[in-house]
Write a protein that binds this DNA or RNA. Structure first.
Lengths: 263, 263
DNA sequence: AGGGGGATGCCAATCAATGGAACACCGATG
DNA sequence: CATCGGTGTTCCATTGATTGGCATCCCCCT
């Protein structure tokens, strides 16, 4: 970092591989920034404009990025084309969708499909009826494993290491910031495992929401994901919903080839 | 290409940029090959195994790829996370989905949402009722602009250059390989533009299928995509379906801010 | 007119990228 | 049990693809 290092073609790559830099360009996009100018791209990825342009152009050539009529960059369809091949995402989605549709028709509420990715849940699919309450959970978005229905269900059936890692640090509930005692959470998870159903009440300032979720099993009794519904507290009938969600989850599991014992 | 060029660290990159090689790794995946071994990856991308492994590992680190328990590579969730930010894909999808749901509930058939990408149509969303006939159109998959309902609707409202380019070469209908005369296609497109509705009959060996599609407009009367339904010929009621599809398309267009004149 | 910001082309200096070789491993075949 | 073909992985000397500061152009806003 000495100022002597200011010559023409100095410090190429700065130690970071090209591929990583290209990927970091992709990572600069998020739900609030779906289109970015070159300057923004450059700043957010911390790559000099000239380099950012060169890399971005390569991504555009391939189709990972596109430029709109204003010249701004945005994520391209080609990326979507490849991404839909993700087995954990759309593979699961494909068999789950018809069942989710049925559930949506019956409940007229938001129906979600989520999988665990590391220490977070990722929303793979969401069906929303017209009249359902607006929530800003976004497909492709991430949710905490604690303090959502789908998250709790995923956590409860996750490998021990994952649970322990999450429990090793203090856990705070999401909308309001209250500490959740580790042993309380442990007991909750045990309940979820026993019932094969997670129920989470999310107290929001405007309207409280109840989310109910059940695990989807694949072969070898591995949990591949969870389905859940999101309903306003005032109309919630957790018991009836629970049965409906469990039934849906079972249907998907059966199609996925889950061992009959689990069903 | 002389054999003299066979030394240790010779010919790095072979002229192809690293980023392109990494992307070509992603491109080796398709619907028939959702998981690949390193050797397959290497062969399909035409990259030496050692280089392929190095690049693939970087993609894995970032999350673009994942390795399953057998060590095989597959597309990762992180890619899906970024890809859902594509404005032309999921942006459109988000507002269209509730309307599509309504249409699906009424028709109990496949409902599709597609956009044009270059000289092809790309399926952005597909809702399938349980009882709907099986078709292997896949989300993220590509369809020809001629010889599908959604394709014709997209083509009819595409820029003149696109239409001319497609018409400049002989066009063959898709399942059966019959030549479609250019002037016939021109007339069809004119009809589609006038009616704001495309109807295409796909004669398959097992079962003939009718697809009905209507354009979705955004601001400035730009066509952002099309919605369509797919029904078996024996139960098709094109006129009723046409109205339903047009209504759905209008609903989406309105929400997208299309000028009232177009509606 | 002038100034600030963004986009893009250029180019010499250099280090990240490269692929062959070597090794470990596995399952199938003789 | 040895052999063989195939796969996955590490290692490393060589070198050309990558780099970012600079100059230029363009547009918008005073």
């Amino acid at each position: 970092m000495t100022d002597s290092a200011r010559v023409r073609g100095r410090r190429p790559a700065q130690g970071e591989p090209v591929v990583d830099r290209a990927l970091s360009l992709l990572a600069t996009f998020d739900a609030e920034h779906r289109t970015l100018t070159l300057a923004e791209l450059s700043r957010r990825a911390e790559i000099p404009p000239s380099s950012a342009l060169r890399l971005a152009n390569r991504l555009v050539d391939w189709g990972a990025l596109e430029r709109d009529d204003a010249g701004r960059f945005c994520v391209g369809l080609r990326l979507l084309e490849v991404a839909t091949l993700a087995p954990r995402g759309h593979g699961l989605r494909q068999v789950a969708l018809p069942f989710m549709n049925d559930l949506a028709e019956v409940t007229h509420q938001h129906v979600q499909l989520a999988v665990r990715d590391g220490m977070q849940a990722m929303l793979v699919e969401r069906l929303s009826a017209h009249q359902a309450a607006p929530v800003d959970y976004r497909i492709g978005g991430r949710l905490p494993l604690h303090s959502t229905g789908v998250g709790l269900a995923l956590l409860a059936f996750a490998p021990k290491e994952v649970q322990e890692e999450l429990l090793s640090k203090p856990v705070y509930s999401e909308p309001d910031n209250r500490l959740i005692a580790a042993d309380v959470l442990r007991r909750t998870l045990a309940d979820v495992r026993r019932e094969r159903l997670a129920i989470f009440r999310r107290e929001d300032e405007h309207e409280s929401i109840v989310s109910v979720a059940a695990p989807v099993f694949g072969r070898d009794d591995v949990v591949l994901g969870v389905v859940g519904v999101l309903v306003p507290k005032r109309v919630a009938q957790p018991r009836r919903l629970g049965l409906a969600v469990q039934t849906t989850a079972r249907g998907i599991s059966r199609e996925l080839g889950a061992a009959a014992t689990r069903l």
